[in-house]
């Protein structure tokens, strides 16, 4: 069984399974907006890499809604 790790999601500490992928985090935190962008440790993650990008203890993940108004 995977052990749990502590990470920061949208600025708040969260406990998640070790080695969890970004795609699973999106499901877990119910981020339903398909237009969100993902920042992982200060780096933009392309959607093609959501399934292969995995988090480690202490990582920071932010789900961000980009802005397209003017």
């Amino acid at each position: 069984m995977d052990s749990a790790i502590r990470i920061i999601v949208n600025g708040f500490p969260e406990t998640v399974p070790d080695n969890i992928a970004i795609s699973q985090l999106i499901d877990r935190f119910n981020e339903g907006d398909t237009d969100l962008i993902v920042e992982h440790n200060g780096r933009f993650i392309y959607p093609d890499f959501y399934m292969t990008t995995r988090v480690s203890p202490g990582d920071r993940v932010e789900f961000i809604n980009p802005n397209f108004g003017g």
């Binding site: 962008i37 933009f44 809604n65 980009p66 802005n67 397209f68 108004g69 003017g70």
Partner: peptide, 25 residues
């Protein structure tokens, strides 16, 4: 540049040197 409510986003794209807008979005 883009805005929404109290939020804003900015980036500069240089063809051939940096990602482009389409890369991100």
């Amino acid at each position: 540049g883009g805005v929404n409510g109290f939020n804003g986003t900015v980036s500069t794209f240089i063809p051939g040197k940096t990602p482009c807008f389409e890369c991100l979005f």
